[in-house]
Amino acid sequence: MNALFEYEQYMPHGMCLLWEPWLVLLWSGSDLMIFAAYMAIPMAIILVLRRRPDLNHRGLVSLFAGFILLCGVTHALSIVTLWYAIYPFMGSVKLATGVISLTTAAVLFRLIPVFARIPNPERHEEVIRELETTLADLSKARDELDARVKERTDALNDANSQLSYTARDAVQRSRNLIQIVSSLTRPGVDVSAYPVTFLRDLRGRINALAIATSTVMEQRNTHRASIERVVRRQVEPLFAQPDQQLITEGPEIFVGAQGAQQISLAAWELASRLSAMPRARQESVRIDVRWTTESSEDGGEQIEFKWHEWHGGANEGSRLLVADDATGRVPDPLPEFSEDLLTRIIPHLIGGEGQVERGPETFVYTLRCSLTALDNSEDIAADEAFSIDREAARLSPA
């Protein structure tokens, strides 16, 4: 290390120039200008790197800056050697410059394929024109797609409107058909083979189905109605004070047309037997309708629909039923066909089960089925329509 700074035995480079003033000035002036330029260039490169952190190959650019900087240092030391013979130190700097130069050259050769793929300005302009053309085509395609989507949407809206109109027309036709069937059972038609109560019940059941269908079709967007609305639409017209006599409670559950018809038919079958009582007795009737849901064994949901009725009388607050004087039981004029309808036919149509419970002080009807059956029960009913019709015909009075 000391050898780098022991230069007394060497002669200054100015002696080789015979200390000619003009030659010394030419030599030192040229090196000074080169040193100034070689110092400015790396500074400019460093400023560019700091302002453009997104540039690629920053390592190669840094090697170039280091290489140029060391070259400038060698020219500065060349000026010093004119008067001071610091040849060992200058040689060390030249060695470092050579190492950096060779490294830069090696990296540069490795990057030749990369640089060769850099497009020229003409290619840049061509690519820009191609991009502009592509963007114009994409914009045109987007406009065409928007127009097609709008056209398809309008067509779909028209189809939905037509379908809604057709559905309403079908419902109206079914109402008319039900009215015709109901009119056939009115006085003036030869129905001597049927008892009067049967004809009255028949008309009530037909009207119950019509009310259920119209309740569902009132919802134009979903064609489904809540259980509470189905029950109230069926029961309220049968009582003088429905707000005080009918209580409904349960989660909001929506059912389709077939499910609404079965619930409406069951509600009419239960309420009509109470509405046929004398008016004074009828006003004491209280009906509590509740429904709950729970998970079933197959992973779905099951609904339990429970009809609980009592006769309030003087003990309305305690919900005690008024027993019949002769039997000691609650009056329960539930015909055999009505009970079969509630416990067999209606549950069979929706794939569930029905149960009637009687006691000295209570009357409860329970209907259980899956939630999907109330919404899609038309498929179940279609598969079993023939057997149900035969069962209903067998149970009907002659």
Rank of each mutant, 00 (worst) to 15 (best):
T215V: 04
T215G: 01
V216I: 10
V216T: 06
V216D: 01
V216A: 05
M217G: 01
M217F: 12
E218S: 14
E218Q: 14
Q219L: 04
N221F: 13
N221W: 12
T222G: 00
T222R: 10
T222A: 07
T222H: 07
H223E: 14
H223N: 14
H223W: 14
H223I: 09
R224M: 13
A225V: 10
I227V: 15
E228A: 12
E228K: 10
E228V: 03
R229V: 06
V230W: 00
V230S: 01
V230Y: 00
V231F: 03
R232G: 03
R232T: 09
R232D: 06
R232V: 06
R233E: 15
R233F: 04
Q234D: 03
Q234R: 05
V235L: 11
V235K: 01
E236P: 04
E236W: 12
E236M: 10
E236L: 04
P237K: 14
P237T: 10
P237E: 07
L238M: 15
L238K: 12
F239G: 05
F239Q: 07
F239V: 11
F239D: 03
A240G: 04
Q241C: 03
Q241W: 06
P242G: 09
D243W: 07
Q245W: 02
Q245E: 04
Q245Y: 01
I247G: 07
I247T: 14
I247K: 13
T248C: 14
T248V: 14
T248G: 06
